[in-house]
Nucleic acid binder design. Structure first.
Lengths: 365, 365
DNA sequence: AGGGCGACCCGTAACGATACAGTCCAGATC
DNA sequence: GATCTGGACTGTATCGTTACGGGTCGCCCT
C-alpha cells in the first residue's frame, strides 16, 4: 500500500521541506539508518571518520532528533519536571522561585533535556503531582521543594527508582540527590556572632510545620546557644506564619511581654518586614535600642529606614544551576550519593548592598 | 522474529505491570485497536454502548495515552510552551509572572496538555526561543509576553501558522490570539478622575522601549488630557527605567524643577516605591500636600506610611487562566479572531486592601 | 429475491528511533 | 587453503498511535 497519510502528518509545518530525520541523513550519506543513529551518539562500532562525516551532515541538514520517536522507542521523554507550588495567598508565591526556575531551565539548555512545569493545583497533594509525572511518564526526572524528613514524594520516587532531585534534605536512609541551604550552620553562626556582640536573649521565629529545614534551624539555634553558654528559654522560640501580619503580631507579643530580648532571628523576607513593623509598634528602634533583627532568605525587600538588620542571603540562581547539574548527572547514570549539595548562606550586615544594586523588587520600610 | 527487547524498553518502571495501552484494552475487550482508539475520542463510527464499554475499561485498567506514540504518529506533542524571560537584575523578575505561570499550568490541567517552560538564556533573542520551540517541535503552541507593535515572534508564528497566544497586543494586520490589560482605558480613567479632583498638572512615567502597552499608555494619557481640556506639556511625560532608583531620580528631578505637578502616573509596582521615595526626598507628603501617585501593576508592595496612592491592579491569575483558555481553544481549532481579550484594571483608592489580606509579598514604606 | 445502503468494526501501514541479530570482508592464525 | 576473528556496517522488528481503505452484516426497498 502506498503512503496515503504522510503528507498531512508528522511533517514540519515550520520549514517548507520536511524536517530531516535519520533516514534523510542515511540516504544522503549512503549509510544505513542504524549506522547514522550510532554515529550520532559516538557508538564504538562506527569508524571515527564516519562519525565525523555523519555529524557534519547532521549539522548541515539541520537534523534534530524527534522526541516522539525517542520516547516511543526508549521510554525517555527528554524532559525534566519541576513542580510549582501555588502561592497560598495573593499573587506572589516564593518570589525567588522564578529565579530558580529560570536558572534550572538555563542549566538544562546545553543538554537535550527541556523543562516541564507542573503546578500542584487545587485539591492535589504534593504526592499527587509527583505521581502524575511518574505514572504518565511526563518526564524522566522530577524536581521538587519543601521537603519533610520523611518526605512521601522522595519515598515514592525511591521505591520505584524514579530519578529526582529535591530542594531540601530529607532524613530517609536511602541516599538521594538534593540541594539545600545550610540553615543549621547559618543559625549557629548568627547566634554565635550575636552572643559575641553581647546579646544574651536571642529569639527565633519558625513557622509551624514539619519541613526539614525547620529542624535544622532549631538545631542550629540550640547548638549556637549551647556553644555560647546561653540558657535555653522556650519563651524565645516562637512559632508564627511567615506572613507580615503574623510575624508582626508575634514580635509585638514577645516584646511587650519581655523587653530583655535584643535579637530576633527571622525565617524569610516577609518576617523581617513583619518583625520590624512589630518593633516599631512597640516603640523600639533597632539602632537606638541596640536590637538586632536577623533575616534569612532570597533577595530581601528594600528597607528605607536604616534599621539594624543582618541578613543571610540565599543565592537562588545557584540553587537552580545546582539542581540542573544534579538532575543531568543522575540522568547520565551517576549515583545519587555524590549529588548532594549544601549551599552556604552569604552573610551581610548591610542591606544597602541590595538596595543600591537597583533591586527591582524592593519596597521600603 | 520474536520480540527480543521489549522487556527492557518502553515498559513503565513505575507500576509492576506494563502500562495499559490500546492493544491491552483491545485484547481485554475483544475489539480491535482501531475501534478502541476511535471509541476513546468519541468517533462517530463507534456505537455509543461500545464507547461506554471502552471508556469504562480504560478507566479500570488505568489507560493513559502514550504521548510519544501520539507525537510520532500525529506530530502533536501535547505541550504548550511558555517563554520565561530572565530577570535583568537581581533574583526577581516580574514577580507576578509566577502567578501567571501557575494559573496557566492549572488552566491546562483539565486538558491533556502540559506546560513546557523555556527560559530565554544568555545570548538568545526573544525570537530565538520561539524559533526553538517551533523548529524542534517542542510544543504545539507557544505563549510569550512583552510584545511590540511589529513583534517578530508573532510575525514568525503567523508566517508558519504556528499557534500562539501573546500576553500583550501587537499592531500586525493578521489577527491573532492575545490577552492584554486595558492600559489605554485605565490611564484615561486615571487622568479623568484626577482632573475631576482638580489636578491640572499630571505627569506620566513610561520606561523607554517599544513595547506595545507603552503606546496605549501614552494614548490614554493624551486622550484623557484632551477630554478634560488640559494642555499637553512634554515636560510632564517622563521616561525612566522602572527601577526604584531611576523612578526616584525622575520624580526628584521633576518636582525640584516644577512644584506645580500634583499627580504622577507610574508604570509598575517598583516605580510607585521610587516615586514615593522621590517625593519624600523633596519634602513632599502626598496627603498633606495633596499630591496623588497613581500606580499600575500586579499586587503592590506594602506601604507602611499612609501615602495617597491610587492603584490600578492587574489580576495576574486571570491572565494565566485566559491564556490557558485561548491556547486550548486555538488548539481545538477555533479561529484566532475570537480569542482576543482585553482585561480591565481594578481600581482601588486604598492600598490597605492589599495590606490587610496578609500579602506575603509586601514590604513597607 | 436481490441489490443497495448505512452502521459498525477491522487490518495494515506508517510516524522516527533504536536494540538486536546478522552480514560482509580484510587480515590473522593454524 | 580453510577457519577464525573482529571491525564496520546493514536489516528488521518494535515501541503506541492513528489515517485510510476495506470489510461484514442486517435491514429496507423495489
Amino acid at each position: 500500500m502506498a503512503r496515503t497519510d504522510g503528507a498531512a502528518i508528522g511533517g514540519s509545518r515550520v520549514t517548507g521541506r520536511r524536517q530531516a530525520n535519520l533516514r534523510t541523513l542515511a540516504d544522503h550519506l549512503g549509510l544505513s539508518v542504524t549506522t547514522v543513529s550510532r554515529a550520532l551518539k559516538d557508538g564504538p562500532e562506527v569508524r571515527p571518520e564516519t562519525i565525523a562525516r555523519v555529524k557534519e551532515a547532521a549539522a548541515e541538514l539541520g537534523y534534530v532528533p524527534n522526541v516522539g520517536g525517542i520516547h516511543l522507542r526508549t521510554g525517555r521523554t527528554m524532559k525534566v519536571c519541576s513542580i510549582l507550588y501555588a502561592p497560598e495567598v495573593g499573587d506572589y508565591g516564593d518570589p525567588g522561585f522564578l529565579a530558580q526556575v529560570e536558572s534550572l531551565s538555563a542549566g538544562l539548555e546545553p543538554s537535550r533535556y527541556n523543562l516541564l512545569m507542573l503546578a500542584q493545583t487545587g485539591g492535589q497533594t504534593p504526592l499527587d503531582a509527583v505521581r502524575k509525572v511518574a505514572e504518565q511518564q511526563l518526564a524522566d526526572a522530577v524536581v521538587f521543594s519543601r521537603t519533610t524528613p520523611l518526605d512521601e514524594r522522595a519515598r515514592y520516587c525511591l521505591e520505584r527508582d524514579f530519578p529526582f532531585v529535591s530542594f531540601g534534605r530529607t532524613e530517609l536512609l536511602t541516599p538521594h540527590a538534593f540541594v539545600d541551604h545550610d540553615d543549621e550552620g547559618a543559625v549557629v553562626d548568627a547566634v554565635a556572632r550575636l552572643a559575641a556582640d553581647g546579646h544574651r536573649r536571642i529569639a527565633l521565629i519558625n513557622p509551624a510545620g514539619t519541613l526539614t529545614y525547620l529542624g535544622y534551624r532549631l538545631r542550629g539555634y540550640q547548638r549556637g546557644l549551647a556553644e555560647s553558654d546561653l540558657p535555653r528559654d522556650p519563651a524565645l522560640s516562637l512559632t508564627a506564619d511567615l506572613s507580615v501580619r503574623a510575624t508582626r503580631e508575634a514580635a509585638r507579643r514577645l516584646l511587650s511581654a519581655d523587653r530583655s530580648v535584643t535579637a530576633i532571628i527571622c525565617a524569610n523576607q516577609m518576617s523581617v518586614v513583619g518583625v520590624l513593623e512589630g518593633l516599631i509598634a512597640c516603640g523600639i528602634d533597632t539602632v537606638r535600642d541596640g536590637v538586632t533583627v536577623v533575616g534569612f532568605g532570597g533577595m530581601p525587600f528594600r528597607m528605607l529606614s536604616d534599621q539594624r538588620v543582618v541578613y543571610y542571603y540565599q543565592p537562588q540562581r545557584r540553587v537552580g544551576a545546582t539542581l540542573a547539574h544534579h538532575t543531568l548527572a543522575l540522568l547520565a547514570g551517576e549515583p545519587a550519593e555524590g549529588l548532594t549539595t549544601v549551599l552556604p548562606y552569604e552573610r551581610t550586615d548591610d542591606l544597602r548592598r541590595f538596595r543600591d544594586d537597583d533591586s527591582p523588587m524592593g519596597a521600603a520600610v
